[in-house]
């Protein structure tokens, strides 16, 4: 399902139009309310706001993990609401990288195998897989820990592996839901440095939800959500395409 080209420009990775999500209940909750958003290639975005402001819901909608009540999410000219559940899974595999708050990794696989996993799902040839895993583990500084299982890695190292895995499929963008929430300051800084470097050097688009002031300070664009609505959208510096 292609979306008309005139809705996006060439640099757009994500475009939302009046995106809303309401959780039905005795009292319906508008978790995301009429959000219009455009994310361009190479952006480094922090999604901030108080607890319950709709950050995670918005990330889930952008990642195709949840379906909107109304409005649309267009990723690379594709309205993802039009995809079937199976198509969505495949779409996520090929276009979106995820880093979750915790327990991200498959515990029975080594760091190397975890990174390789999404490429196996994509049926990428073994030689290409091996080369990319080596490169990614080097980029996240974990070449030495490649054969360790997650239980043998620290929290920060696990999140680095998660970032490497998120990048393994060469996604359009990476969504990270509070990636530093369970990390100490030093580890959180290291992780942020690494993500910022990947953004700078390789132009990878990152969108992360956070409460963490340290993360907000490193972001190039800060989007604030309050009660599900966009309250502010501040670009801190001119992005290099």
């Amino acid at each position: 399902m292609s979306y008309p080209q005139n809705h996006t420009n060439e640099d757009s990775v994500i475009l939302t139009e009046k995106l809303s999500k309401t959780y039905e209940g005795i009292v319906p909750v508008k978790a995301v309310n009429q959000v219009d958003l455009e994310v361009k290639k190479g952006e480094f975005i922090a999604l901030v706001g108080p607890s319950g402001s709709g950050k995670t819901t918005l990330l889930n909608l952008l990642g195709g993990l949840d379906s909107p009540t109304s409005g649309s999410v267009i990723i690379h000219n594709q309205d993802i609401a039009q995809l079937t559940k199976n198509q969505l899974i495949d779409f996520r595999l090929r276009n979106i990288g995820f880093v979750f708050q915790a327990y991200n990794l498959i515990p029975v696989l080594t760091a190397r195998e975890n990174v390789e996993f999404v490429m196996l799902l994509q049926k990428i040839p073994v030689e290409v897989r091996n080369a990319r895993v080596d490169q990614l583990l080097k980029e996240v500084g974990l070449s030495e820990q490649a054969n360790k299982k997650p239980s043998k890695l620290s929290g920060g190292q696990q999140q680095r592996v998660a970032v490497a895995r998120a990048l393994a499929s060469k996604p359009q963008f990476v969504l990270a839901d509070e990636p530093t929430a369970n990390l100490d300051s030093k580890t959180a800084f290291n992780l942020l440095d690494m993500m910022a470097k990947l953004n700078e050097d390789e132009g990878i688009t990152f969108i992360f939800s956070t409460h963490d002031q340290r993360v907000i300070e490193r972001a190039k664009r800060v989007i604030t959500l309050v009660d599900g609505s966009l309250e502010s959208d501040i670009v801190k510096e001119v992005l290099v395409a």
Binding site: L65, R92, R94, F100, V118
Partner: peptide, 16 residues
């Protein structure tokens, strides 16, 4: 359950 959720989220088909 959480792990299954992560696996489906990152692109593992449910049949697999």
């Amino acid at each position: 359950k959480y792990e299954f959720g992560v696996l489906v989220a990152i692109g593992m088909k449910k049949i697999k």
